[in-house]
Design a binder for these strands. Structure first.
Length: 281
DNA sequence: AAAGTCTCCTGCTTGC
DNA sequence: TGCAAGCAGGAGACTT
């Protein structure tokens, strides 16, 4: 599942292979992929034809591609979205949703998405920061992210710490996998209430979030279920470094207690019952 | 207003 | 064997 490290890996690939190229044709194969582009799929294709990609930027799990028109292509991979570079004429993927051809006749950019939770849109005048993602907080690897402000905001919340980590308006880029991994590293149970977390505990947690995200980027991301690949179709290998996520019943790498799985928001949380005791309520 | 829940979607896995 | 339910989950819409 694409979280910050996976999206950053894709960003780096796009920066290498797409920046400076002029879009010639856009084919929307499935309108749901551009459902957030309110003027519709025809407009999406028309407004992009002839535009040159100037850069590839990211905030949290969102990508945007500033164009020479001051607009930007905004993208989110959702659960299963992939941005792939493929030679012209290569067979269509089963879940191909959008195809971009370039004026240089080089490789196409394809948006492929099995579960269709992801999508693309054109942000009018959004080259600097698309309005569509202005509500998303900076991510913890952003040089302008303030640790002090984050910890203060965390402690003002009246919720559980894992819910707070997943709230993209508080800190962006963290999803279920890296939330569980950071909480394990910080030896905190995700149900711990945020308002009684000490400042040092909040800072330690943020440090662990940053560490796990940075290490995962170095590994090219986590390809837990093969739905995530980079722009060249290659898997990341951080799944080998996961300590708790998806490891129910296996020994905690720190204390050997069997990893526990608990229901959380209609999904699962993984933690060590000994290193991360559940808070008394 | 903030916090919590529901819904969108497909394909693989599990169970009767 | 076949069908149905369960599961994966990001984030916007909706409810409390």
């Amino acid at each position: 599942m694409p979280e910050l490290p996976e999206v950053e890996t894709v960003r780096q690939g796009l920066a290498r292979w797409v920046v400076g190229r002029r879009i010639s044709t856009v084919e929307v194969r499935h309108p749901r992929a551009v459902r957030r582009h309110l003027p519709g799929d025809r407009h999406f294709a028309d407004v992009l034809a002839g535009r040159t990609v100037l850069d590839v930027r990211r905030r949290g799990k969102y990508l945007w591609l500033p164009l020479d028109s001051t607009d930007a292509i905004v993208g989110h991979l959702g659960m299963s979205g992939q941005l792939l570079l493929q030679p012209r004429g290569a067979a269509d993927e089963l879940h191909l949703r959008v195809r971009f051809g370039f004026a240089d006749d080089g490789p196409e950019l394809r948006f492929v998405d099995q579960r269709t939770f992801g999508g693309l849109a054109v942000s009018a005048g959004g080259a600097q920061l698309p309005a569509e993602i202005a509500h998303i907080a900076r991510d913890p690897l952003d040089p302008d992210f303030s640790a002090t402000d984050f910890v203060a905001a965390l402690r003002r919340r009246r919720t559980e710490v894992k819910r707070a980590l997943l709230d993209q308006t508080l800190v962006s880029g963290v999803g279920n996998i890296y939330a569980d991994e950071a909480l394990w590293r910080a030896k905190l149970h995700g149900s711990r209430p945020t308002d009684v977390l000490t400042r040092p505990a909040g800072t330690r947690l943020l440090d662990q979030v940053r560490d796990v995200l940075t290490e995962a980027i170095r590994a090219g991301g986590t390809s837990f279920d093969a739905l995530y690949v980079n722009v060249n179709g290659e898997s990341g290998y951080f799944d080998r470094s996961l300590n708790v996520y998806g490891r129910e019943g296996q020994p905690c790498p720190r204390c050997a207690a069997p990893i526990r799985r608990e229901a959380f928001m209609n999904r699962s949380s993984y933690s060590c019952p000994r290193c991360q005791p559940r808070p008394r309520r």
